[in-house]
């Protein structure tokens, strides 16, 4: 409730700032906010390939996904065949998995939130808590650096005291040219680097250009990484709420 009030107050204020700050030097908040909006859009749908690399095996999965902001998401595995038809449904802070083999829907309990999502280096919690950086962190421009030949703002994000986040500090590099993210480093509360996220290969999908390769390197487990590769994407399309329902979750592959 408190958070909702804060959001109700903060968001309009932030908007006023953005409008007022037009043309003037940009603040870290404005940069991060615009970058996030560019990346996500109001809604999206697409196909992507997830490649998991571990010292023991490397495997790829293809998926389809539907996304409405940060609130709702449905992800369906389309290959390999052993896992095809398994789905993940996210509605606000809750997560369900549909397993085609046993035709069951499982709600992921809080105790399992930190477990790996479909064997990747992402946890279930990452999907649920894919919260807005602007809401949970205070930020400042720390430096200007070059990442992959692109001049970037290096923005330091520190969690707000009351923010329900797991990171102690984040460094986020945003390209000055087009405000797309280039790299993110996540540190825990003790200051150790836990993950590095690399955004590469900017491609145009419909009306927007986004990085089409998202590589997450797990810095706590050597030689573990997960890569997302956009195959198709559409942004800001109307999506029916029915997509994010149990009926749809438990239906076969007929969309």
């Amino acid at each position: 409730m408190v958070r909702r009030i804060i959001r109700a107050v903060v968001v309009p204020v932030a908007l006023i700032h953005i409008v007022a700050g037009e043309g003037a030097a940009q603040t870290a908040e404005q940069i991060v906010k615009r970058s996030e909006d560019l990346l996500k859009g109001v809604s999206s749908k697409g196909r992507f390939r997830m490649t998991i690399v571990t010292p023991d095996y490397t495997r790829s999965m293809e998926m389809r996904a539907w996304w409405v902001g940060n609130q709702k998401a449905l992800i369906e595995i389309t290959s390999p065949r052993r896992e095809a038809g398994n789905k993940t449904l996210k509605v606000n802070n809750e997560l369900w998995m549909y397993l085609r083999n046993t035709e069951t829907t499982i709600k992921i309990p809080p105790s399992m939130m930190l477990q790996s999502w479909n064997g990747s280096d992402f946890t279930n919690d990452d999907l649920v808590r894919e919260s807005s950086l602007v809401e949970d962190y205070t930020m400042r421009i720390a430096a200007e650096e070059t990442v992959d030949g692109e001049l970037c703002w290096k923005i330091e994000l520190l969690p707000k005291p009351t923010a329900p986040v797991v990171w102690g500090r984040i460094f986020h590099w945003i390209r000055k040219k087009d405000l797309l993210p280039a790299r993110t480093e996540y540190f825990d509360e003790k200051g150790a680097l836990m993950r590095t996220m690399l955004y590469q290969n900017v491609k145009r999908f419909g009306n927007r250009a986004v990085p089409s390769n998202w590589l997450m390197v797990n810095n706590t487990k050597p030689n573990h990484s997960t890569e997302f590769q956009y195959l198709e994407a559409q942004f800001d399309i109307p999506l029916s709420d029915r997509i994010f329902s149990f009926q749809e979750l438990e239906k076969g592959r007929n969309r």
Partner: peptide, 16 residues
């Protein structure tokens, strides 16, 4: 009931 677990090959196995 259904038991779900990640296998040696990374695939999420599930059985009744």
């Amino acid at each position: 009931l259904v038991i779900l677990a990640q296998g040696r090959d990374g695939v999420m196995g599930n059985l009744r």
